[in-house]
């Protein structure tokens, strides 16, 4: 009976969590005129998807999002790896520096968006993908640093000691031993950074323009004076979620691998 109650509760929780995305999936295949119907599938159409790409330049925004999310991760990850390693191994800056890095994540994004705009305008990088990449890298850096610090702390220091007596420099030990051993951690951090950048709305809204908008901004634009094109929005949401679902599969594997990898004793 207790087991039944537990399962019932878990199923209920799954329904609550899954219902909105499932309903969005359903709505994305329903004509706009029937999108608010309560029927499960009153009619089937792919118009919402084709319309998104043909009329709303969704392809461009999709590519923009990919470039910005991937670019920011590629730019931020090496810095985060070096910083995280310095914190983990050399205790650089002590507890204060660790906390300071975490504290930057506690600021409300809206407090940073105007300074970011001012800086990018000064550099002539507003309404540009490199500008967004730079900002997202900066925003992700503390978070990625913190995650990687945890992974590096799990790598036995003796391994680097062994590499250094084997003939490697400190940098060589980091590059040849610590980085390969921490690959699952780097992958997990990379995927999390990608998701953060992919979903970001506020900075993209303020800093991008008509050519450089990302998916969240383009979806918001479907909220027009004629009303919300909910079926198209749903199609956009489904397409936006897709890479994240795939990424989640990876990150799950990597995080588990990351947690069980280091223990060679």
């Amino acid at each position: 009976m207790r087991k039944f109650g537990l399962h019932f509760g878990l199923i209920l929780a799954c329904v609550v969590v899954l219902l909105p995305p499932l309903w969005a999936l359903r709505t994305s295949f329903v004509p706009e005129s029937m999108s608010y119907s309560t029927e499960i599938l009153p009619a089937f159409t792919l118009d919402n998807y084709t319309g998104l790409f043909e009329k709303n330049r969704f392809g461009t925004f999709y590519v923009n999002s990919l470039i910005v999310a991937l670019g920011s991760v590629i730019l931020a990850l090496p810095f985060a790896a070096c910083t995280g390693y310095a914190f983990a191994r050399f205790r650089t800056g002590g507890r204060f520096a660790r906390f300071a890095v975490l504290a930057t994540q506690m600021l409300p994004p809206v407090a940073l968006v105007l300074p970011a705009f001012a800086i990018l305008r000064g550099a002539g990088l507003t309404n540009s993908l490199p500008g967004l990449i730079l900002v997202y890298s900066a925003l992700n850096l503390p978070f990625l640093t913190w995650i990687l610090m945890g992974f590096f702390e799990g790598v036995p220091a003796d391994m680097e000691g062994a590499a250094m007596t084997d003939g490697a420099t400190a940098w060589g030990a980091f590059w040849r031993i610590v980085i390969p051993v921490s690959l699952p951690g780097l992958a997990a951090a990379g995927v999390l950074g990608f998701i953060l950048s992919w979903n970001e709305f506020l900075f993209a809204l303020v800093l991008s323009g008509p050519q450089t908008a990302t998916i969240p901004v383009s979806l918001a634009a479907l909220q027009t004076s004629n009303g919300v094109q909910i079926a198209k929005v749903s199609a956009g949401v489904v397409l936006a979620i897709l890479p994240l679902v795939i990424a989640s599969r990876f990150i799950q594997r990597f995080i588990i691998q990351g947690l069980t990898f280091g223990g060679v004793k």
Binding site: M159, G161, A162, A163, P180, L183
Partner: peptide
């Protein structure tokens, strides 16, 4: 080393 510190990869 006590932990052997072999390179696991």
């Amino acid at each position: 080393f006590q932990s052997y510190a072999l390179y696991p990869h």
